[in-house]
Design a protein around this nucleic acid. Sequence first.
DNA 1: CTTCCACAGGAACCAGCGGACC
DNA 2: GGTCCGCTGGTTCCTGTGGAAG
Length: 415
Amino acid sequence: MGNPNILDDVFEKFVNEAKLFKDREVLRHDYLPDKLPHREEQIRLLGQSVAPVLKGSRCSNIFIYGKTGTGKTAVTKFVLSHLESKAKEYGAPVKFCYVNCRMTGSEYRVFASLSQSLGLSIPFTGLSVGEVFDRFRVGLENTRTIFIIILDEIDALIKERGDSILYELTRINEALQKSKVALIGISNDLRLKEFLDPRVLSSLSEEELVFRPYDAAELRNILLERSRLGFFEGTLSESALSICSALAAAEHGDARRALDLLRVAGEVAERHGEAKVTEDHVREAEKHIEHNKVVDALKNSTLHSKLVLLSVYHLSKASSNATTGEIYDIYSELCGETGSSLLTQRRLGTLINELDALGLLNSKVVSMGRYGRTKKIRLEISRSMVKEVFSADDRLEKLIKYEPKLLSKNLRTSH
DNA sequence: CTTCCACAGGAACCAGCGGACC
DNA sequence: GGTCCGCTGGTTCCTGTGGAAG
């Protein structure tokens, strides 16, 4: 089993044959390069908005919109890190705090991490939100700075918890004398405005910045720029580069996806021990990424979510679309098979929405007139992928082969 | 035009948990 | 040690609704 020679071999091979990557880190989407192609305009605008803090006055609140992978986070971090060094130079009292709302997840935790960035220690639970907010306000007042708060992926928080945090934060300046707060909100969802209280909206979007998706040519430039840093010369074929940008451009111009694709393609080529990354490696990388997405998503989901996915899988044999009711029937049967207690249909609805958000299912509400109103649900990933992933789990593999009894009976629901 | 299906999805609530405060 | 708190993951009850059928 534990023969060290095998490993020696693997490592040896890796070190000797890893002639593709100059610097793998550069190709990660969270890497911050010192040049952001095709975003000069946004950098300039954001820079202008934020510049007043160098003279000690509060800058406007700024709202940034744009889809995933359009460079919002990168531009913001880029501008602020430059601002930070300038501020040091001029001795301007400025502090930043970057909070990713999706990771942070709740009002309490947002205030907690804001407080922590001021050096306050806040227990991770146990206090009331109001108490944390008060401590934050007092702590901030004592620091005597302009505090710039960046709330990334703010839409995630607002849709779940409402806009009360924003309301508090936009009003906090009224209670402060020695310090000031400026907000930068970053949203992936352009419709976020609709969810906001008009008072919050007006104070939050004193300035607005919109990030358009990259087109294929721009993505290509970005990839080219990065690949110069990340790959050795001549190890990346033209066609590989083009197909990466084309694939990502087709998916709403997502630079993040393009970079992931390129990096994984490089890893695939490396594993095959090849000297050049080709188009085929990109194709394989695409599959690889999807597979990982599914495995990751399922790893963190409950038994019931998995059963729901399996139900859709079984139903997809009969037709590509399933309805909530059908899924609930099959799901109930699978629950009986595993001997687990079943959840309500209400709950199932939210589980379906969660799987939709993860990109494993695709659901759409449709009306069928006299025959009611329901969600049409189909698999977003290939059936073979589901089969592959579930077969790896010995507790669930028998369910993939299981033939639901209701399935044959349900032929009557044809239109 | 009305009816009526098969749900969607909001609101209120609950239990169990880990934890702070006094 | 009692009280308060937030979060998770559920339940129950409820009102709302697009559009084909009648």
